[in-house]
Amino acid sequence: MQLFLSRKAASPVAVLQAIFFFIFLSILLVTGIMLISLLKLPTYTMHEFHAEVIAHRLLYSDNTFNYVDALGRVYPGIVDLSRFNSSSLDDEVQYTYDRFVAARFTLLDAESWKIMTWRDERGVSRIRSTYLNEYVFDKWFPLFSAGVKGKTVDGVQYYLPVQYWKRGDLEPAILEVTVLVPTT
């Protein structure tokens, strides 16, 4: 091994040693930052609360699936089935970055708690659900429902007693509310 470099070799070696020095220093600093972040968290984790707020926004708004009478009064808790479609929620809440929140509302039968279905104009049976960012929701929901620690998606899921109009009468139903937000 050559212990002493010649004068000509000194310059490129100096560059190399500087690179080595800064790489080593960067690793040291990143490690330090990670250790400090572990000791004191400067961020507030409020994912569940965030999801709860989004759920309330959608549940009480006059632009979603709530029944609105001729005078413009909103009836939260009474579902207007004609507005219970995916586009109504996507019209109500628009994020520039669509991976910010996703939600699903599903109507269940009040007695059996089975998912309600309906037939479209072609006679195909469809689930009575409405989505916000459906594509994102379908990706996130398995992560959320897995319930593992350290998951990248958090949110809320609960059930509310609601009513809906059927042939001029109000019928009872259960609304399954699922709102998901990313944790990263």
Partner: peptide, 19 residues
């Protein structure tokens, strides 16, 4: 600052939903 920012943002969410 982060707390206040999130709080105002969530307040804005609820303001949107409030009829």
């Amino acid at each position: 600052r982060e707390l206040y920012t999130k709080d105002i943002a969530l307040t804005m969410e609820l303001m949107h939903g409030a009829p």
